[in-house]
C-alpha cells in the first residue's frame, strides 16, 4: 500500500487494465513487465468472470477467452508469485465478487499480500457490505479496497466512500459499462465542486481510450485508467512487446507534454 500511496503523489498517472489469461493463459507476467518497461505507472490485473455485468463487449470477450484458456484465481496467484522480483509499480487486482467469495475473502487477501498486490477493485462489492463484513480483513492484510464513484453518486455518499477509502477513488467518467462512452460526462465545474475536500486522490476510468481522453481526464484527476482500448491493442497480430510499447507511447509521451494540469 505504501507503493500505491507514493505513486499517487504524482500526476498524469497512466493505469492500464488487462484481463489475466488473455490473449494467452500465461501472458500475465509478460504483460505486466512490458507495461512497466513501456512507462505505465500502475496496472490493474483483471480476474476473469463468467458474467461481467459492468463490462462492455471487449472486456466480456477477453474474459471469455481467458476462462476458456483455463484461467483461475489459483493460477493467477501462482503466476504472480515472483512478480515483485521484477516489478516495482503498483499492482491492483480487479474482479467481480463471486470468484473472490468462493476462493475465501480472507485467503484472497492473504494471497494478495504474499504476492505484493497493493489493492483490489471489486465493482459489485458495495460499500455497506464491505464496511460491515470485510473492511477489517482487508485492513489486516494491508490491502487497499478501491471504491467506485459514479456521476450519480450523491455528495453524502461520496463522503462516506472517501472515508472508507485509503488510497484513491475510482471515478467512473460516465454512466456506462466499460468501453461504451467517451470522455467525461460531468462538466468540469460540477466535477471539481464534487471532489473538493476529499481525503484521497482520484483516478478516472471507463470512457478513457486514447491520448485525447487521457489528457482530458488528467486535467480533472491524478490520472486515468485505460482498459478496453488496451485489450483491443494487444488483440491483433504482432509481438506482445511491440504492441504494448506502441500503445503506451501513443498515450504517455503526448500526455507528459501536457503540463497544463490543473492539479
Amino acid at each position: 500500500m505504501t507503493r500505491l500511496k507514493n505513486t499517487l503523489t504524482k500526476k498524469d498517472l497512466l493505469n492500464i487494465y488487462f484481463t489475466a489469461g488473455y490473449p494467452n493463459l500465461n501472458d500475465t507476467s509478460r504483460i505486466i513487465e512490458e507495461l512497466q518497461a513501456s512507462g505505465a505507472d500502475m496496472i490493474e490485473i483483471g480476474i476473469p468472470f463468467s458474467d461481467p455485468l459492468a463490462d462492455g463487449p471487449v472486456i466480456q470477450q477477453s474474459s471469455k477467452v481467458a476462462l476458456e484458456n483455463g484461467m483461475t484465481l489459483n493460477l493467477l496467484f501462482e503466476q504472480l508469485k515472483d512478480i515483485r522480483k521484477h516489478v516495482t509499480i503498483p499492482l491492483v487486482l480487479m474482479g467481480y465478487f463471486n470468484p473472490v467469495l468462493q476462493f475465501g475473502v480472507e485467503k484472497f487477501c492473504a494471497k494478495c499480500k504474499e504476492a505484493g498486490i497493493d489493492g483490489v477493485i471489486i465493482p459489485d462489492l458495495p460499500l455497506d457490505e464491505y464496511l460491515e463484513r470485510y473492511q477489517s480483513i482487508f485492513e489486516e492484510y494491508e490491502l487497499s479496497n478501491i471504491l467506485l464513484v459514479s456521476p450519480g453518486t450523491s455528495a453524502e455518499r461520496l463522503k462516506k466512500i472517501d472515508e472508507a477509502s485509503n488510497s484513491f477513488l475510482y471515478f467512473v467518467s460516465s454512466n456506462s459499462t466499460t468501453g461504451n462512452k467517451n470522455g467525461m460526462q460531468e462538466s468540469k465545474e460540477n466535477y471539481f465542486h464534487r471532489i473538493k475536500g476529499l481525503n484521497y486522490p482520484v483516478l478516472i476510468g471507463f470512457g478513457i481510450k486514447d491520448r485525447n481522453t487521457f489528457e482530458e481526464a488528467c486535467k480533472y484527476a491524478n490520472g486515468a485508467i485505460i482498459g478496453t482500448s488496451f485489450i483491443n491493442a494487444i488483440s491483433g497480430e504482432g509481438l506482445l512487446k511491440e504492441k504494448v510499447n506502441t500503445f503506451i507511447s501513443s498515450i504517455k509521451d503526448q500526455a507528459q507534454l501536457t503540463h497544463n494540469s490543473i492539479l
Binding site: 455485468l53 463471486n98 467469495l101
Partner: peptide
C-alpha cells in the same frame, strides 16, 4: 448450487469451484 453472488444478489447458484457461473 452453492451460495454466491450473481445479478447483484447473494443466493444459491450453480457454479464451478472457481466461482464461475
Amino acid at each position: 448450487g452453492k451460495i454466491g453472488v450473481l445479478h447483484a444478489c447473494k443466493t444459491l447458484l450453480m457454479q464451478t469451484e472457481d466461482g464461475q457461473i
